[in-house]
Design a protein around this nucleic acid. Sequence first.
DNA 1: TTTTAAATGTGATATAGGTCACGTAATGAC
DNA 2: GTCATTACGTGACCTATATCACATTTAAAA
Lengths: 192, 192
Amino acid sequence: MNAAEVLRLHISKTTTFPGEQFEYFFSHFKLLSFTKGQALISEGDKVDYEYFVLSGCLKSFYINDEAKMFILQFAMPTWWTSDYNALYNGNRATINVDCITDAEVLGLSGIDREKLCKEIHEAEYFFRWRTNKGFVALQKRLLSFMNSDAKHRYEELILLYPELYNIVPKHLIAAYLGVSRETLSRLYTPEK
Amino acid sequence: MNAAEVLRLHISKTTTFPGEQFEYFFSHFKLLSFTKGQALISEGDKVDYEYFVLSGCLKSFYINDEAKMFILQFAMPTWWTSDYNALYNGNRATINVDCITDAEVLGLSGIDREKLCKEIHEAEYFFRWRTNKGFVALQKRLLSFMNSDAKHRYEELILLYPELYNIVPKHLIAAYLGVSRETLSRLYTPEK
DNA sequence: TTTTAAATGTGATATAGGTCACGTAATGAC
DNA sequence: GTCATTACGTGACCTATATCACATTTAAAA
């Protein structure tokens, strides 16, 4: 399946663009390839793009004053990622995005997104729903943070995204769960 | 300022509806009054409405198996609230919404929201941006959860919404911060 | 006003998870 | 294949926060 087909299939779960409008829509995306470890967005950058993942796995993360990393999101194929605060509000990036594995993505600039949303009502509809879903998912994650201990959160994560278990190193999973790598490592030891 | 003016002013921060379209848009909202303690949405309900707060203060919250409450959001004037998972996906409510004080709100049904978004491109634009902002704010809150201790989170909250300090009882603020009321109460005691 | 219930404060104690330290296994570079 | 990273495991100890219990203060109801 080529990039256009992957994106069309993804969008078709929410809406359908009439006539040739998908081709026009798609023409605004740039196909980009990155290698493991490469950064798409680094703290302090001007952020002009958001990314739709075709293959591979990315992470978006925040680094605090003590150089501790907190992972906001793993981005697998058909996921979107960026520093949305920076992209929407024209701020400098406070969040980093880089590659956990080699990856192919489609880049869409904020300018083109707004242009497409103006020109194609269905595009605006699509992006509204995409963010709706993201919002609801984030709310669930926040609740799981407040409600559940590390072990429970870990099990929820692996249940929801079993792929991550093999692809993503454990210390990154720990950084997503908000626990130290030592604690994650000890979750399944009987401990006396 | 009447309800229509409050809503128009709120929307004008994001976009402007051309011609008479705001009046048409507004005609789909129902003005509703509630008293302190009254519920707008209870767990298990069918959720047909979202609410725009005109006056007073609401909370949306989740109750876990051990009857512990976690507050997702305080809703002050010009904030929107609902169980968005239930409203968007047609599920039963898992989240409750009720009144911390007497409150006036404008209710908009999910059906009318979708109708308005279809009919008025600017309405779709508005709701897309509203959710964008909500998403970014939630992401910040999640980071603050992972990064900061209870005291820091408390200070962030009061700095951002000083009104809450007087209006909202401390045990509800604790439920928002994800700490026990005892811990919140102890934050500013020198402790030995 | 009197009574009842809700909100808050505070001590004592328990525990999940953090931090530091060190060792081993796996992966990648040359 | 050797060397250097990076990932992972585990012990010892520390700390923030939870929980339970009870007192006190404030607000609502009768």
